[in-house]
């Protein structure tokens, strides 16, 4: 075993390093090294995230058209959008779509997670099957829904007619409210697995001893859910909800494949309207402005999830205040 002198000598030797070239010396500087290690990730972020985002924001302040670079026009795009009823319709649709779809996804997803958390035969298999709607490419499931909602060939209408419950086919996508509800239903169907599986993971981290203790104290199942499951699940619920809101708010594929924003633009979300104006319409500046207008909503939704649902004390294991 080395004595204290030897240990001190070894320490000195280490401190005296490096004696090599300036490159070696520079690389030995923890600050420089950390910077170098972060550089690849930072480059990726800059090139693929910051630059496109920055470009999008810049385009929103210009009158760029497809095939023609624009000039800076300040807030003109936003002023024009402010007076555009179609834009406001898209905003309200997006908010409505996000709120209802998120509520639906979380109510059903949590329920499903609770069911799956019980001991079931062939548990792993069932859990894998549950994920199918999430795994199937959105465009495929959207096409399936397009047929399910078809005014002439809908299987739902057909089944209800055969059962004698209705005498004419339901116009799922033909009136604004029907179309909105149908799209929300399709989005909920698609989103449930993500929520359910994430929450299931959260549920499994809750110690069974808490439930045992509660059971001994005579807590009802609702009380166990309200006072154990929900608070323990809250941190993960917040994260999952944030993601879910972001995904729903920026949804594009379902709407584009099923209604293209119709009838008469009443199911346009901000994302589909931005695309319609920017790419087929050629108004890149205006499309970018619509896309940028989504950012405040997204920030708000994210902040809401974090601050309202995931108060820090919970996350750090403290008690609710």
């Amino acid at each position: 075993m080395p004595g204290p002198d030897m240990a001190i000598a070894a320490e000195r030797k280490r401190v005296a390093q490096p004696t090599g070239s300036w490159v070696a010396r520079t690389l030995d500087n923890p600050g420089v090294l950390a910077f170098l290690f972060m550089l690849p990730a930072a480059t990726l972020l800059l090139v693929f995230l910051t630059y496109p985002l920055g470009l999008g924001i810049w385009l929103g302040f210009t009158d760029t058209k497809i095939g023609r670079s624009g000039v800076f026009i300040g807030l003109e795009n936003y002023e024009s959008l402010f007076q555009d009823s179609m834009f406001w319709l898209a905003v309200s649709n997006t908010v409505l779509y996000t709120v209802f779809a998120t509520i639906g996804k979380f109510a059903l997803g949590l329920w499903l997670a609770l069911l799956l958390n019980n001991h079931l035969p062939a548990k792993a298999l069932i859990r894998s099957i549950i994920l199918v709607p999430w795994i199937v490419p959105t465009v495929l499931s959207a096409l399936a829904f397009w047929w399910i909602y078809d005014p002439q060939f809908s299987i739902i209408s057909w089944a209800l007619t055969e059962m004698g419950l209705i005498d004419h086919y339901i116009d799922f996508l033909g009136t604004p409210n029907n179309a909105r509800a149908s799209l929300i239903a399709a989005n909920i169907w698609r989103g449930i697995p993500f929520v359910a599986i994430c929450l299931l993971a959260g549920l499994q981290t809750i110690s069974p001893s808490l439930y045992e203790a509660a059971a001994l104290d005579g807590a009802t199942s609702w009380q166990r859910f309200r006072h154990i499951t929900l608070p323990m699940l809250m941190p993960i619920l917040a994260v999952v909800m944030t993601f879910s809101i972001l995904f729903t708010f920026t949804d594009f594929q379902l709407i584009y494949a099923i209604t293209r924003g119709g009838p008469a633009g009443t199911t346009h979300l901000m994302a589909t309207l931005a695309f319609q104006r920017a790419i087929p319409g050629g108004q890149l500046g205006e499309g970018a402005a619509i896309a940028v207008a989504m950012i405040p909503f997204l920030l708000f939704a994210t902040l809401f999830s974090y601050f309202a649902l995931a108060r820090r004390k919970w996350q750090q294991g403290g008690s609710d205040d």
């Binding site: 909602y149 002439q152 116009d171 799922f172 996508l173 033909g174 209604t259 293209r260 119709g262 009838p263």
Partner: peptide
């Protein structure tokens, strides 16, 4: 009925 939601293939 239903033409309100008709897209190109409908």
């Amino acid at each position: 009925p239903g033409t309100m939601s008709w897209l190109d293939p409908s």
